[in-house]
Structure formats: C-alpha cells, structure tokens
C-alpha cells in the first residue's frame, strides 16, 4: 500500500535515508533498511578522500542541528566496495550522492559508482568550498547534469539548495538539462557563536541547519517547485513524524528523505510507515493521490 515509483525506481515505501546521515558505510545503510527505510542515499562522495572540516562539526539545538561536516568521504574508488556490499545484502534501491567542482569530476564519480541504482547530484551543501559556489549557478548545474546523464543509464536526481533567490529557477535548469527528479532541500546556511567566549562554535564557523525547524521552509520550496516543474520532487527537511511526511507529499513530494530525525531513533522509518498507512486508510486514499493534493485547493 505504500509502494511508490519515482523516476523509474521502485521503493517499497516512500521513506528514504537522506544523504550524510549514517550513509558512510554499507553496514549503516543496511541497518536503515532493516529499520524500515524504503531506500537509501549514500554520503556525498567525491573523486578523492576528504577528511572534512575540523571539529566541532555538529551543534545540537532544541529544534534541530547545525552541521559543518565538510563532505568527509573516502573517495569514489574505495566507496565502490560499500555499494557492492549493500547490493549483496539488500534489495532496496541505493542512490549514490555525488559531488565535484566541475562537470568532469562529477562524471568520473558517477562512472566509478555506476553499480548504484540512481544518482543524486549534490550541488547544495552550504558549507563546502566545492558545492557552495555551485548552488546558484544554473549554467554550471545544467552542465553537470548533462555530463552525468551521458555517463550513466540510471536516473539522475539533483539536490537543491534553499539558500538561493529562486529555487524554482534552479529546479527548472536541472529539468531542462535532463534531470529525472529534484530533491529539496539541503540545509540552510547557519551559524552559532558561544556567548561566553565570543567564539563561533563550529570548526568551519558556518554550517547548515537541519531538523524540525526547517520543515516549513522545505514545505514551501516543494510547493513552489511542484507548481512549475514536470519532473518528480523528493521532499527532505525536518521530517520527524508521519504528519510531516504527509504534509510534504500534499505539497508535492513523491517520496521523502529523512536525515536528522534518524539520530534520535533509527526506528523512525517504521513509526512513520505505520502512521502513513493509518492515514491513508482513514482518508481512503492511495499513496499517489496524496502527491500535490494541496494544490487543488
């Protein structure tokens, strides 16, 4: 009853592990599926290994998190193994999140990780030197999408930043370049300063805000994208309950990614699935009838 198909990929349920939360190894992604995720997105992977930003790289707030991990990853050659291991143990789709400074770098990562069932191009991490300058560059995003589409046969999603003047313009650029779906949203650029010492807490000073506090921003972005785009939208940002998931689908999301909420409870996927089923039964709706329903009124 919860099965969805997005850009040709079939998911047992619409709840997908978001990039960068646990997805550093096959084992952690397999455990997300065991706890009910319908699919997983890997940590964002680049051409070579990166250690990421200096610690502290996460600050926990009552309503969310600010992180400045800085895209740590083992590089695509080594990460190939993790995708292989995941596929040996799990039937759920695995989407490789990929990034790079220019189209040829991103293409190389995609080629190396071609065993993945799909790709999510990260042009939206707000605190990384590599992706920050891409987030608002429609032309460059278009070029990257075209290069990746040429290199792989599986679906290509583009993950959008909310830190731009018009997310719809960027979404359109991705669509025109041939993207099969967009993912909205990445974290909101944010900062926190310790008042005792006057020192910015994060090692990188600037980070990205995630968690329940960004949900209204994500819902607005998805709503706007749905009005203009023809390709599907995967919603992400602050989902912590089945109500949040329903709300995002009503705004126009065909599937949902969950990140920060996994921190407190890996079982979150099971819990949201149960709530979703109950809601659909009560309202006598099919899951695909939820998508974009708020636009009817």
């Amino acid at each position: 009853m919860l099965e969805v198909e997005v850009s040709g990929l079939k998911f047992e349920n619409p709840l997908i592990l978001a990039s960068g939360v646990l997805g550093m190894s096959a084992s952690s992604m397999i455990s997300a599926v065991k706890f009910g995720a319908g699919g997983v997105v890997t940590k964002s992977i680049g051409v070579r290994a990166r250690e990421g930003h200096p610690m502290p790289c996460v600050v926990e707030l009552p309503f969310g998190l600010i992180n400045a991990m800085g895209l740590p990853n083992p590089g695509c050659e080594e990460f190939k193994e993790e995708i292989k291991k995941f596929k040996e143990n799990c039937d759920a789709p695995i989407i490789a999140s990929i990034f790079g400074g220019d189209p040829s770098e991103v293409r190389e990562v995609a080629r190396t990780l071609r065993d993945a069932d799909g790709f999510e191009i990260n042009v939206s991490c707000p605190h990384s030197d590599v992706t920050k300058k891409l987030e608002d560059d429609e032309e460059m995003i278009g070029d990257i999408v075209r290069e990746v589409k040429k290199a792989v046969d599986s679906p290509v999603w583009v993950k959008l930043s909310p830190n731009v003047s018009s997310i719809v313009e960027i979404g359109l650029a991705a669509q025109e370049a041939g993207a099969d779906a967009v993912v909205a949203i990445n974290t909101l650029r944010a900062m926190i300063i310790d008042v005792e010492t006057g020192v910015p807490i994060l090692g990188n000073r600037i980070g990205g805000l995630s968690g329940s506090c960004i949900k209204p921003v994500a819902v607005r972005c998805i709503y706007e994208l749905y009005e203009t785009l023809e390709i599907p939208i995967i919603g992400v940002g602050g989902v912590t309950s089945w109500k949040d998931a329903v709300e995002m689908m009503l705004a126009g999301a065909s599937a949902i990614e969950i990140g920060t909420a996994v921190m407190k409870d890996v079982r979150i996927f099971e819990k949201i699935k149960a709530g979703l089923k109950e809601y659909l039964t009560k309202k006598n709706l099919k899951i695909e009838e939820l998508v974009g329903r708020a636009h009817r009124v």
Partner: peptide, 9 residues
C-alpha cells in the same frame, strides 16, 4: 565526529 549518532563516522 558528532558524538550524537548522526554523522556515521
């Protein structure tokens, strides 16, 4: 890295 179960390190 995070110490709170979010980053997967």
């Amino acid at each position: 890295k995070c110490g709170i179960g979010v980053c997967g390190s």
